[in-house]
Design a protein around this nucleic acid. Structure first.
Lengths: 147, 147
DNA sequence: CCATAGAACAAGACTCAGTCTCAATACAAC
DNA sequence: GTTGTATTGAGACTGAGTCTTGTTCTATGG
């Protein structure tokens, strides 16, 4: 999927409106930061990039945006929760997690691989009576800088 | 891989010894619990099953066991870190994460699927200069009880 | 215009999972 | 036994994340 930046903001605004929420400058700053980074961001990243946004507001914005399906939480390998734009605003991807520095890198799978994943997920779901919504492959290892 | 319970304890003891650590009753109780459950356990699970082990000791044991490669941390979808035996003591598996109750269920992949994963991980690593160590597919959705 | 109701916001108090400290105890080797 | 090292329990401590409160913005309508 190739979504233009403009249409993303329209979509975000629309989803917020559905829940009687406004697309305010604070919320927009968060979304633009996540768009710009293209990688999951921790609260520390947000604070560094947007010093004018108080921590409590940043958390609240992220929770609100998560509530309307614009933002997703990513559990990294260190103590910090990270946030990224939901996949339907960007594209489906997986994560490389560095066990040394905790960094998270997005990578895009091939179609062939995704077919294999879907078949496997189907099988798991049948076995366990589980209703799947999404999936993510996490690869643990050492990033270029840490190896 | 089919590892008997006895050989697991020998292996754990050996790995601890390598780091001048003893396989004490407290540590053994943790390992036995994780073996018995066969599923990732949170600290609350450990406390419930082993009320005689103080929380601080349970955490310390888990950290020690993680340090010698016997235990692995699992980031679930709720606020609680979970712990499971390292894959080389059990067998390679993936996780079904319930976004409603936070439960984590282990599932074992087919060989064909693992081949596809290895090829994809190879490709990611080449692209990003990343040195992979292990991987895990997390499927988000609703478990049988919550759906 | 002004009023008003609900959303947004900043600041800081608060929670609690997880870590650290320290004094006491067990154990292994000599 | 003595000594050095690992282990343990209890509780203090840390800090990411949440909640509360009082204030400010903004949309609507009279």
């Amino acid at each position: 999927m190739t979504t233009t930046e403009g249409s993303i903001h329209e979509l975000v605004e629309h989803r917020l409106r559905q829940s009687d929420l406004r697309y305010t400058p604070g919320r927009r700053a968060i979304v633009e930061l996540l768009l710009r980074r293209g990688q999951p961001a921790s609260i520390a990243d947000v604070e560094a990039a947007l010093p004018q946004v108080p921590r409590s507001s940043a958390y609240r914005h992220l929770v609100d945006l998560q509530g309307v399906g614009v933002v997703r939480r990513v559990a990294a390998n260190d103590d910090f929760t990270r946030f990224e734009l939901a996949e339907d605003l960007t594209e489906h991807h997986h994560h490389l997690l560095c066990t040394s520095c905790g960094s998270v890198t997005d990578v895009t799978p091939t179609e062939a691989f995704e077919h294999a994943v879907h078949a496997m997920v189907e099988e798991f779901s049948r076995q366990e009576g589980f209703a799947p919504l999404s999936h993510s492959l996490d690869v643990l290892g050492h990033c270029q800088r840490c190896r």
